[in-house]
Computed example of a mutant assay.
Amino acid sequence: MDMIGAYPGGWDAMAGALGMTRDALSNRIYERKGQGILVQTAMEMQEFSGTTIFAAGIAAMSSGTFVKLPDVDHIGNEEITGKFHEIFEEMGKLSANFREFTSDGVIDPGEQESLNDLIDRMHRTMDELRALTFKVYCPETKAATVAKRGEKHV
């Protein structure tokens, strides 16, 4: 429903963009009358709404994190070097937080959430670094090739 709210015009506009009535969209969203949303329809809704909500939801359900690759036209070594600096800063924060949070011998739920947030941010930064590196130095490499890399770890 967040994708519908993000689309200008809301329910009626999204239904129209998908070529269905508001009632038909509502029946699919709320799974009434034996209906449901097809993956292709969810992908269209995501594209129309300009969000990554569906992708993030699938990643979360798969115990993962969705990382939107950077969309930059003019990039070079300076931007790549900046990503390395971000990783080093984040690693320093992780090390300091780890030392602080484990000093009492227990990581409480708030500390665990803080560590998870920082580690997720580090993963995003590293994926951005990889995407920028390949975009600059491997012009034939497409974002899809970078995305396929994850399949090797399945």
Rank of each mutant, 00 (worst) to 15 (best):
L69Q: 10
R121T: 12
D104E: 07
F48R: 04
R124P: 02
G16S: 14
G76L: 07
T141Q: 03
A59L: 14
W11D: 02
Q112Y: 05
I29W: 06
I107K: 10
I107Q: 09
L69H: 03
H85S: 01
F98K: 08
A60Y: 05
Y30I: 04
Q46C: 08
P8D: 11
Y7M: 07
T102P: 04
G57P: 04
D71V: 06
D117S: 14
K68Y: 05
E100G: 05
T41N: 03
S49G: 12
D23H: 15
E111K: 04
I119F: 10
E78Y: 05
S62M: 14
A60S: 07
S26F: 01
T145H: 15
V72K: 15
T65R: 08
S95A: 02
L132Y: 05
A147K: 14
S62I: 01
H123P: 00
F101H: 08
F98T: 13
H74Y: 10
A13G: 07
H85E: 10
Y30C: 04
A55P: 06
I87H: 12
R149L: 08
E86M: 05
S49R: 11
A131V: 06
V146G: 03
V72I: 13
G19Y: 01
G34C: 11
S63H: 14
F98I: 01
Q35C: 03
G34I: 01
M122R: 07
G92L: 06
R32M: 10
G92V: 04
M43F: 12
P139W: 03
S26L: 04
H74I: 05
A56Y: 02
T41A: 10
R124E: 06
Q40M: 11
N97E: 08
I107H: 12
M43G: 10
E86I: 05
G10W: 03
G34A: 07
G16A: 15
L94F: 00
I53R: 13
E128M: 11
K93Y: 08
I53Q: 11
P70D: 09
M43L: 15
M43H: 12
Q35D: 11
A144T: 08
Y7E: 15
A6W: 02
C138S: 15
R32C: 01
L69G: 08
K68V: 03
K148A: 12
M122N: 05
N116H: 13
R124Q: 10
G105Y: 00
D104T: 00
D104N: 11
E111V: 02
G50A: 08
R124L: 01
G57N: 13
Q112N: 06
N77D: 15
G92P: 08
G34D: 14
T81Y: 14
I37N: 06
Y30N: 11
R22L: 07
